[in-house]
Simulated scan of single mutants.
Amino acid sequence: MVGSKFLDLSHNIISGIIPKSLEKLQNLKYLNVSFNKLNGEIPSGGPFKNCLSQFFIYNEALCGSSRFSVPACPTPSKHRSNRKKVLVLFILLGIALVFVPSIFVFLWIRYRRGKRAPQQPDSLAFITRERISYYELLQATEALSESNLIGSGSFGSVYKGVLRSGTAIAVKVFNLQLDVASKSFDTECEVLRSLRHRNLVKVITSCSNRDFKALVLEYIPNGSLEKYLYSHNYFLDIFQRLSIMIDVACALEYLHHGCLSPVIHCDLKPKYGLDGLVSTKCDVYSYGIMLLETFTRRRPNEFEGDLSLKQYVSYSIPEAVMDVVNVNLVTSMGNRYQKELDLVASIMKVALDCCAESPAGRTNMKDVVGMLQMMKIQLLAF
């Protein structure tokens, strides 16, 4: 991409800002990002000095130089900022004066009631205020019928269910025969209270008693990645596979770097870890194996002896990438064929970097997201 002179990214529904780093691409003569959802300031250096205004039309909120026919970027006003701070302070004081006494009254009433009510032996812990009873979950999943089984994980199984309201749900039931499963349930409940990301399944509530612990999740109807990889009724092209894996990487980046303290997923399929220690590096390793599986369509457990999926790929990259890549994934002709082949080889290299033997040698999810997103832009430019 560094040596490319023409880059047309128009009509691609790209959001976010235009990276200022593109100013360094001195050889770039033509850049068209019109008809997208970009915002923020248009860079003014490097190739942007010669760009025409029509290359930036029909975006959400671009700003910058008047020669691009966009409004000037707003400049922060210290005086306006101070006025806003004072206004917010008065609003917060007003809210406090109204609600703080009410909260004390509410807590006092609850305290009085708690002293009169006997302690329940079976507890229900809910992440939201919506209440779903144990019996309603049984009814929704047809008594955890095997026909409703979606899949199994390290600590339990997931079932599809339909509530009386017609809402489809996924119920993750923990295997309480495993001591770690009970601890995992309590940990997940605590962690999931604060997680908010578009690529993470939303938690509706949780249900718990002495003999049953479950999380009630939003049901995702499109099925698993495994279905799309191994079913003969579906075929994912390079762009679709790369987009899916970028979404997974973004979710892991949020868990590892976007929370107050790192959250370890520890249940990616397949679940791999050679160091024996639970850390974010375990997730990175598992993600790398998942990325290899996505582009080779080879299951990690199908190899015999000392050969592994990681070794199978590393022996063929980059010279013989077609020997390991999913059949018919690269079908282009001429110059585009070689570009797609090189791109897949680069993706495999990222995956192998995630699977380094030493945890310290593995890349982090922030870098993975950045590299894969750049490859996606390259693919669009072919």
Rank of each mutant, 00 (worst) to 15 (best):
V2L: 15
V2P: 10
G3K: 15
D8P: 07
L9G: 09
I13H: 06
I14H: 01
S15K: 08
I17F: 08
K20Q: 15
S21I: 13
S21H: 14
F35S: 03
F35V: 05
N39D: 06
N39P: 01
N39Y: 14
G40M: 04
F48R: 13
L52I: 08
F56S: 08
F56W: 05
F56Y: 01
E60K: 15
E60S: 15
A61L: 04
C63M: 10
G64Y: 13
S65D: 15
V70P: 02
K85Y: 14
V88R: 14
G94F: 03
L97P: 06
V100M: 15
I103M: 10
F106S: 05
R110D: 08
R113Q: 09
P121N: 03
E130A: 03
S133A: 12
L137Q: 00
T141E: 04
E146Q: 09
I150F: 01
S152Y: 04
S154P: 01
V158M: 05
V158N: 07
K160Y: 12
V162N: 12
G166L: 01
G166D: 10
I169K: 02
I169R: 00
A170R: 05
F174Q: 00
L178S: 15
D179L: 15
D179K: 15
A181R: 02
F185Y: 05
D186Q: 11
T187V: 13
E188K: 05
E190Y: 10
S194Y: 13
R196E: 12
R198T: 15
V201C: 06
T205K: 07
C207M: 05
R210F: 13
V216K: 01
V216C: 00
G223N: 03
S224F: 03
F235E: 08
F239A: 11
L242E: 02
L242W: 11
V248Q: 01
V248G: 04
E253F: 02
E253L: 06
S261Q: 14
S261F: 12
P262A: 07
P270C: 09
Y272I: 15
G273F: 02
G276F: 04
G276Q: 08
V278S: 07
C282D: 08
Y285C: 11
S286I: 03
Y287L: 12
Y287E: 07
I289W: 04
T294V: 02
T294F: 02
F295L: 00
R297F: 12
R297I: 10
E302Y: 15
Y312V: 10
V313R: 09
S314G: 03
Y315L: 10
S316R: 10
V321Y: 03
D323M: 11
V325I: 12
N326K: 08
V327T: 12
N328Q: 14
L329M: 05
V330D: 00
S332E: 11
S332L: 00
M333C: 04
G334W: 00
N335F: 14
N335V: 12
Y337D: 00
K339R: 14
E340S: 06
D342Y: 08
D342T: 14
D342Q: 15
L343A: 05
I347K: 04
M348A: 07
C354Y: 07
C354N: 07
P359T: 10
A360K: 13
A360F: 09
R362L: 12
T363M: 03
K366E: 11
M371W: 10
M371D: 13
I377V: 14
I377A: 13
